[in-house]
């Protein structure tokens, strides 16, 4: 069954693109097209819309936690506490430092890279 396949199930070079279309493009653009189809027609249900927005926010928050707690690649070699300290310092800078996203990103990166260099955990290869 195609629905049970994963990104790496098939060896064919076209499969990743089909996977991206079916698991990414279709379930995204379908909502945009629905928006055009229903624009001006459907009465908007404020409660349902708010619940959908709240669940979507929690979903992205879960992704953030996933990226910080269970990353892949190079980040996985750094200790969890360093990744948590990095995002916490960046977010703290954003919230208390005048709501500038770029400033928060810069602080988080300095903590992450500085910590990694101090620990020597990601030495040269």
């Amino acid at each position: 069954m195609i629905l049970d396949l994963t990104y790496r199930s098939l060896d064919a070079p076209w499969w990743p693109f089909v996977f991206i279309l079916l698991a990414g493009w279709l379930p995204t653009d379908i909502w945009r097209f629905l928006g055009i189809a229903s624009a001006g027609g459907v009465r908007d249900d404020a409660t349902a819309a708010k619940l959908a927005r709240t669940v979507a926010t929690a979903l992205v928050a879960a992704v953030i936690a996933q990226l910080v707690l269970y990353p892949s690649g190079e980040l996985a070699k750094l200790p969890t506490w360093l990744r948590v300290a990095s995002i916490a310092s960046g977010f703290g800078t954003y919230v208390f430092g005048g709501r500038r996203i770029l400033a928060g990103i810069a602080v988080a990166e300095v903590v992450l890279v500085g910590g990694a260099l101090l620990l020597g955990a990601a030495g040269p290869r």
């Binding site: 953030i64 990226l67 995002i87 960046g90 977010f91 954003y94 996203i101 928060g104 990166e109």
Partner: peptide
């Protein structure tokens, strides 16, 4: 790769 979580959270 770590740009993404910081950007999204903020």
């Amino acid at each position: 790769a770590f740009l993404t979580p910081v950007y999204f959270l903020s």
